[in-house]
Simulated assay, not measured.
Amino acid sequence: MADAVVIRVTRDAGFDAAVPLPAYETAGAAGADIRANLPDGDVLLEPGARALISTGLRIEIPEGFEVQIRPRSGLALKHGITLPNAPGTIDSDYRGPLGVIVMNAGDAPFVVEHGARIAQIVVAPVVQAEFALDSGLSETARGAGGFGSTGTN
Rank of each mutant, 00 (worst) to 15 (best):
S73E: 05
V43N: 03
A116R: 06
T150M: 07
P84A: 08
V111Q: 00
K78S: 11
F15C: 01
A119Q: 01
S73W: 08
A17H: 09
A36T: 04
Q120V: 02
G80D: 05
A36M: 05
D3Y: 12
Y24V: 05
A124D: 02
V67K: 01
T10W: 10
R58M: 11
T10G: 08
G136D: 12
N153L: 12
V111P: 01
A4G: 11
A23W: 08
I90Q: 08
G74H: 09
G64S: 12
P97I: 12
G74S: 14
V43G: 00
P97V: 13
R58Y: 01
E113Y: 03
A36D: 03
E66K: 12
G96S: 07
N104P: 07
A105L: 15
G80C: 07
G143S: 09
A2F: 14
D3E: 15
G146H: 05
P109Y: 09
A29T: 06
A32H: 07
A141E: 13
T152W: 07
M103T: 10
A29C: 09
S54F: 08
G99T: 14
L57H: 04
V100L: 06
P20Q: 05
N104V: 10
G136A: 14
H114C: 06
A30K: 11
V9H: 09
F15K: 03
L83P: 01
L21A: 10
N153K: 15
G143A: 09
I7F: 05
G148D: 06
L21C: 02
A36K: 01
I34G: 00
P22C: 04
T26H: 11
V43M: 08
A51N: 09
I59K: 01
I7R: 07
E46N: 14
A4E: 15
M1W: 14
L45E: 04
P62S: 11
G146I: 06
S73D: 02
A36Q: 02
A36L: 04
N153A: 14
E60Y: 12
Q120M: 04
A132S: 08
Y24S: 04
F15G: 00
